[in-house]
Design a protein around this nucleic acid. Structure first.
Length: 813
RNA sequence: GCCCGGGUGGCGAAAUCGGCAGACGCAAGGGACUUAAAAUCCCUUUUCCGGCAACGGGAGUGUGGGUUCAAGUCCCACCUCGGGCACCA
């Protein structure tokens, strides 16, 4: 067969059509006898098109899925999309189309783009989270959580993004700004909102990081999660408000320093602060709250006021003033602290600023107490002037003093978390309606199960003006109370779209089920996800929420796994002109454009070749040219050698086959461990270079072994080209259904060992010797080597190091 | 400030267990083919010194120390870039 030019458009169009005719690229059944492998990419929030960064995410997962199938696994690799949140709503407003209609048009476009990329796609497992069935199960979960006290409504200070015109959960605030609008500062508003009790699982979420995720998830992500959950062990202690029976409860991790407390500081919102202060004081408190709202995170200004009240330290009966300050937060700990300026940085700063007394009660183990400290002593030491606790080490004092508080009823050891409950209410049109009804007589009434799903009305006006458009939809809002039958109002908040993405991967296992969210047996087969792949930006968003959801579902008896994913891989970002691709910066490269210019195969190969997948990479068109050239080289070699008759030269055959088997070994290892696909592809390039060198001297028999193996190795990375070449080779069936090639350890062996000769660690020569050569013989050969001799002549040989088959190092003086 | 990662040619990078630094590719330069161009194929390309050349020698993986026969790799200190957290009591 004559050489063919590599026409990527033609080839990709041809094989895309074939795949269309065969729905379900992966026929993955739960009762398969193969071992299972569930690989999944984190879904981006596509607002119309894939860009080159998305391709990278999918290319990694798709290559792995194809490899695993070829290795004999029963692979579940669904591809889809989940929550269409604000982008859909915004686009709908702009295009004057109903979001539902817009979303479905968008999904059709996404499908087309996925097909063009040749991503394996299980058409039977399509899940779109805007569908009524998905709403039903979201709502069903919501009600289950209410039953268990995990969903509740309360008036709270919540984050408000003016751009989105909705509230946000804490996890969705990044550097004081909205996660979707990097330059829009989030405001605080007091609103009545629905929350999910993530704090109820704080301890388990933290513990399982060590017990279940360590080793399988990147340390970076685990560190971020630990940080976010923020467990701290300490003590709660009641100070008595002077002249009353009222207690001010403070939380401290350093109860051992309490004899040095010279002040109690309350958050400005603290009820006791409010009660102590007159109108002027309240105005000041409000001022403090405002300072905090507007405060730049890097601004560390502390402002405080004396409330006029005094509190009694229960350990020593000291009377200390009660202050308020902006640096004490109402929603962490108890909203009140004891200030120990001598042993805490912040308290020291505050005390210095307002001339409060500073009293040392902890000394360094080998030092004395500082009478007038110039800086706080915050290290481990010995507690002094603390009555019966004097002389104890920091750790012992903490234990003894916590026990003392508990025994005398004025406190106890306590654990505080930084993580807060997940605010799930959104004032958006788009999202699952929260399934409750507000009745004047009966209060908050759950919608009965047989009335689910509560669906979005289709005739609302979408304004994007900060109030849920649902509130204006009279037919939707005005309902009868399910309990008493009186006129009542439907809840108009919708759920955070992160709710949808928290369990979509369960629904993928059983997407058409209308009796239950899923069949638990199917989940038991597929879960946990063997490999989850996505960007690090979801480390404390999606990846906390979905862990929480998994634990709740386990406690509801629906599943048995404790964690959603056994292994997580975070791929690097695709950078363009030194910045992450984003619409705002206008540096987005559309996948469609790239596929048209270079082809899907080239886009994938280049993205995997340019850098190891965990590292950020720059997209440059120049680099893509190289990947394209490589595919062309392979293609031409295969097409012109498919039926060429040749006797060949045994030496060339041996060289090429050795390279081939080394390559199979290398790529197999890369897939099984490091995923350094850049070196896998580099290896294929090396093989192709050898094939070009030896081409005229390769025998038919060698070619018959090399060509199909090369095509199979290329399959996971460049599926279209591989498919076409497979056909050229006269083979049938999709490439990814072939068994993965095996390497032969005999064939990959070099003929002789290349032994490096060093003198004092410097390379001076090399020897080619048979494998397993005798040490003494190697030493002799090295000493006699003409390149080595000049460097040892006239010097004393002190020592000779021999690493068999590798190296001889002669140490001379 | 605390916690994670990084720092290797003009560029992206490789070196998997302490054993030949720079594989593979990009860009650049040269050559072949061609009326010409594109495409393709081949060669050179860390740097400095010596040489017409083959070649020979020195230096070299952010900086300074250390361990070792041997360090990009291990240890200590520092510089620097990126990311995360940050009045969390």
């Amino acid at each position: 067969m004559p050489e063919r030019v590599y026409e990527h458009q033609e080839i990709e169009a041809k094989w895309q059509l074939r795949w269309d005719a065969t729905p379900g690229l992966y026929k993955a059944d739960e009762d398969s006898s193969r071992p299972k492998y569930y690989v999944l990419e984190m879904l981006p929030y596509p607002s119309g098109s894939l860009h080159i960064g998305h391709i990278r995410n999918y290319a990694i997962g798709d290559a792995l899925a194809r490899y695993k199938w070829m290795q004999g696994f029963n692979v579940l690799h669904p591809m889809g999309w989940d929550a269409f949140g604000l982008p859909a709503e915004n686009a709908a407003i702009k295009n004057k189309r109903h979001p539902y209609e817009w979303t479905h048009a968008n999904i059709a476009e996404m499908k087309r783009q996925h097909r063009r990329m040749g991503f394996s796609y299980d058409w039977d497992r399509e899940v779109t989270t805007c569908e009524p069935e998905y709403y039903r199960w979201n709502q069903w979960f919501f009600l289950k959580m209410m039953e268990r006290g995990l969903a509740y409504r309360k008036l709270a200070n919540v984050n408000w993004c003016p751009e989105c015109a909705t509230v946000l959960a804490n996890e969705q605030v990044i550097d004081g700004c909205c996660w979707r609008h990097e330059t829009t500062r989030v405001e605080q508003k007091a609103l009545s909102q629905w929350f999910w009790k993530t704090t109820a699982y704080a301890d388990e979420l933290l513990r399982d990081i060590d017990d279940k995720l360590e080793g399988g998830w990147p340390d970076r992500v685990l560190a971020m999660q630990r940080n976010w959950i923020g467990r701290s062990e300490g003590t709660e202690v009641d100070f008595t408000l002077e002249g009353t029976e009222q207690k001010i409860r403070v939380f401290t991790t350093r109860v051992d320093t309490i004899y040095g407390a010279t002040c109690v500081i309350l958050a400005p919102e603290h009820p006791i602060a409010q009660q102590l202060m007159d109108d002027e004081g309240k105005a000041r408190a409000k001022e403090l709250i405002d300072i905090r709202k507007q405060q730049d995170p890097s601004d560390v200004r502390k402002v405080g006021y004396f409330t006029g009240g005094y509190a009694i330290n229960p350990y020593n009966g000291d009377k200390v003033p009660v202050w308020i300050s902006n640096f004490v937060l109402m929603d962490y700990g108890t909203g009140a602290i004891m200030a120990v300026p001598a042993h805490d940085e912040r308290d020291f700063e505050f005390a210095t600023q307002y001339d409060l007394p500073i009293r040392s009660v902890v000394r360094a183990i080998d030092g004395g107490l500082e009478a007038i400290p110039t800086a706080p002593f915050t290290e481990y030491g010995i507690t002094e002037i603390a009555g019966e606790f004097s002389g104890l080490t920091t750790a012992d004092a903490r234990r003894a003093m916590s026990a003392h508080a508990e025994k005398h009823g004025f406190g106890n050891a306590s654990i505080t978390y930084r993580i807060k409950d997940w605010g799930v209410s959104r004032q958006r049109y788009w999202g699952t309606p929260i399934p409750v009804i507000h009745c004047e007589d009966c209060g908050v009434v759950p919608v009965p199960l047989d009335q689910l799903p509560v669906l979005l009305p289709t005739d609302v006006k979408i304004t994007g003006q900060g109030k849920s458009p649902l509130a204006e939809a009279e037919d939707f809002v005005n309902v009868k109370c399910p309990t008493c039958g009186k006129a009542a109002r439907r809840e108009t908040d919708t759920m955070d779209t992160f709710v949808d993405s928290s369990w979509y991967f369960y629904r993928y296992c059983d997407p058409k089920n209308s009796d239950a969210p899923f069949d638990s047996k199917k989940i038991a087969y597929w879960f946990p996800i063997d490999q989850y792949i996505g960007g690090v930006e979801h480390a404390i968003l999606h990846l906390i929420y979905s862990r929480f959801f998994t634990k709740v579902m386990r406690d509801l008896g629906l599943i048995t796994n404790d964690e959603p994913a056994a292994r997580l891989f975070t791929q690097g970002m695709v950078i363009r002109d030194g910045a992450k691709m984003s619409k705002n910066k206008g540096n987005v490269i559309s996948a469609d454009e790239t596929i048209t210019n270079y082809g899907a195969d080239t886009a994938r190969v280049f993205e995997l070749f340019a850098a190891p997948p965990e590292r950020d990479m720059d997209w440059t068109d120049a680099g893509a040219d190289g990947a394209y050239r490589f595919l062309g080289r392979v293609f031409r070699f295969v097409t012109r050698n498919v039926d060429r008759v040749s006797d060949g030269d045994p030496a060339s055959d041996r060289k090429a086959l050795r390279k081939l088997h080394q390559l199979i070994h290398r790529i197999t290892d890369d897939f099984d461990s490091r995923w350094h696909f850049n070196t896998s592809i580099a290896g294929m390039m090396e093989l192709v270079n050898v094939l070009y060198e030896e081409e005229s001297k390769l025998s038919r028999a060698a070619l018959d072994q090399i060509l199909p193996a090369l095509v199979l190795l290329l399959g996971p990375f460049a599926p279209f080209a591989a498919e076409e070449m497979w056909e050229v080779l006269g083979r049938t069936g999709p490439v990814f259904r072939q068994p993965w090639p095996k390497y032969d350890v005999e064939l990959e062996k070099e003929d002789a060992a290349d032994v490096v000769l060093q003198v004092n660690g410097k390379l001076r020569g090399r020897l080619s010797v048979p494998f397993g050569a005798d040490q003494a013989a190697l030493e002799q050969a090295a000493l006699a080597d003409p390149k080595v001799k000049p460097f040892i002549d006239g010097k004393q040989v002190v020592k000779i190091i021999v690493v068999p088959d590798k190296l001889v190092n002669i140490v001379v003086r």
